[in-house]
């Protein structure tokens, strides 16, 4: 399963895109905010952020489930427990 870390206000985890490129999934806020999820890919010119909605078909479904669930745990309003012990 994905290994999450806390970086400031965001939660990040390394993921692999379907074309084999390494990226970071970034969870920044609740599902009501369309910009609260992002994928960051390292390129020759530094890091590039890909809008999440345009990249869902480049992620495995197992990773997608974990990213959405992480968003709900950290920023959702259904009462799921946020993960414990993630370094800031």
């Amino acid at each position: 399963m994905l290994k999450w870390q806390k970086q400031g206000p965001a939660y990040t985890a390394p993921v692999q895109l379907s074309e084999g490129v390494s990226a970071s999934a970034v969870v920044l806020g609740p599902a009501s905010n369309p910009k609260a999820l992002a994928l960051v890919v390292a390129g020759a010119d530094g890091q590039a952020s890909i809008p999440f909605a345009e990249a869902t078909d480049r992620l495995s479904m197992a990773d997608l489930i974990q990213i959405y669930c992480m968003q709900e745990r950290c920023f959702g309003n259904h009462g799921f427990r946020p993960p414990e012990g993630l370094g800031a």
Binding site: M1, D57, M61, A62, Y68, C69, R73, R81
Partner: peptide
């Protein structure tokens, strides 16, 4: 994935074949 793991470290596996059988797609997942 939602924090209801029977162990401290979540280790569940989801096979591609299993997901295909559920008929759930990235569009219907949310």
């Amino acid at each position: 994935a939602s924090g209801y793991s029977s162990e401290e470290l979540a280790t569940a596996v989801l096979e591609d074949e299993a997901l295909a059988l559920t008929g759930i797609t990235p569009d219907t997942l949310p």
